[in-house]
Design a protein around this nucleic acid. Structure first.
Lengths: 166, 166
DNA sequence: TTGGAATGTCAACAAGGCTGACGTAAATTA
DNA sequence: TAATTTACGTCAGCCTTGTTGACATTCCAA
C-alpha cells in the first residue's frame, strides 16, 4: 500500500519533522481525550484509574481481577486499591467464580453503570465530534495507525476484544 | 466529505460501539507511544515529565518558562521541580532575557541534546514503523482525527508550531 | 497431597500532579 | 516617580497512582 518513489510527494510523511508532528499530535490529543472524564471526576472520590477500571468492567461484565490486571497493565496492589474504593462506593461488585472459586468476577452495580454512562457519554461526545469532523476515511486511517502503534501484546488484547466482551 | 445515508456503510463509524473501539485504541496506543522513552528513562534520574520538557525545549530553543507552562499545562511549581533537576543534571541551561530580563530562555546543552536524541529516536522509530505499516492515506487520517480531538486552545498551540518553533 | 494459581493485604516509597503563601527583580502604567 | 503587574523561583504540604516486597488464604490440578 505505501508505494512511492521519492522526490514528489513520496515519503514526505516519514521525515523526522513529520514524525515529530505526529508525536506532538498524540500528546495534545491525548490531553483532550482525557479532559472531559477528568473534569467530571474531579470533586468525586474517584480518578482516572477508577474510570479505566469501570470502563473495562462495563465492556466485559464478569471479567476477573486477573483479566483486568492484564488489560490495565498495573500491579495487583495498585488495582486492588482502586477496586476497593469502587466496592466501598457501591459501584462494583465481585462474585466468586462458579467454576473456579478463586476467581472474582466483576460487575458494575446500577450506580456503577450510571457513572460509567456519564463518563463515556462525555468521552464519546468528543470522539464523535472528531470523527464527524474528520470523516470516515480519516477515521479508518486513525484506527489503522493507532493499532500499528501498539505493543504486539496490547494489539492482541485489543483485537481480541473486537466485537463483544469476554 | 462525510456524506452518506444510512443502512449500507453509512455512519457505521459513529455508532457507540465504533466510538468505544476508538477510545480503547487511543488508550492502548498511548501506552505504546510512551513505552520506549519510559524504558530508556527508567534507571536514570529523569522521568516522563523531564522527557516532555526536554522535547519542547529542543523543538523551540530559547523558549521561556512561561511558554513551556502554557504548552505543558502544569503548574509552575511542578515544572520548576523538573527544570531544577534538568539544570542540576546539566541538560538544560537558562539565559536571562536580553529584551525582558525577567524572562529565562531555555536551551539544551550538548548533554541535553544527546538525551533528547536518544529518546526521540526511540519514539520516532515506533512512529515510523506505524506510519510505514499504515501508509500515507492512513497517516493523513490519523493526523486529521487527532487534531479534531484536541481542545481548541491546544489545537492553536499545535498549529502555531506547525513549521519551526518560537 | 502438594505445588502453583488467583486473590487480598500491609507497609513503604517514588513520581508527578496540585494549592497556598511568600519573595524578588524588572517592566509597565498611573 | 510611585504603584502595580509580570515573570519567575521556592518552601511546605497534600493527593493520586504507580512501584516492590512480604505474607496469607483459598482452591485447582497433577
Amino acid at each position: 500500500m505505501a508505494e512511492n518513489s521519492f522526490g514528489g510527494e513520496g515519503l514526505l510523511y516519514l521525515t523526522d519533522e513529520q514524525l515529530r508532528k505526529g508525536i506532538e499530535a498524540m500528546f495534545f490529543a491525548y490531553r483532550g481525550f482525557t479532559a472531559d472524564p477528568d473534569r467530571i471526576l474531579e470533586g468525586m472520590d474517584y480518578g482516572r484509574a477508577h474510570h479505566r477500571a469501570v470502563h473495562f468492567i462495563n465492556r466485559s461484565p464478569g471479567t476477573t481481577v486477573g483479566n483486568l490486571l492484564d488489560i490495565l497493565g498495573v500491579t495487583k496492589q495498585s488495582l486492588n486499591r482502586v477496586l476497593r474504593t469502587l466496592f466501598d462506593g457501591g459501584l462494583v461488585e465481585a462474585r466468586v467464580g462458579k467454576k473456579d472459586k478463586r476467581e472474582r468476577h466483576l460487575y458494575l452495580t446500577e450506580k456503577g453503570r450510571a457513572l460509567e454512562r456519564e463518563l463515556s457519554d462525555a468521552q464519546r461526545a468528543r470522539m464523535r465530534a472528531a470523527y464527524r469532523a474528520a470523516g470516515p476515511q480519516a477515521v479508518q486511517g486513525f484506527r489503522t495507525v493507532l493499532e500499528a502503534m501498539m505493543d504486539p501484546e496490547m494489539r492482541r488484547q485489543f483485537q481480541g476484544m473486537k466485537d463483544s466482551g469476554q
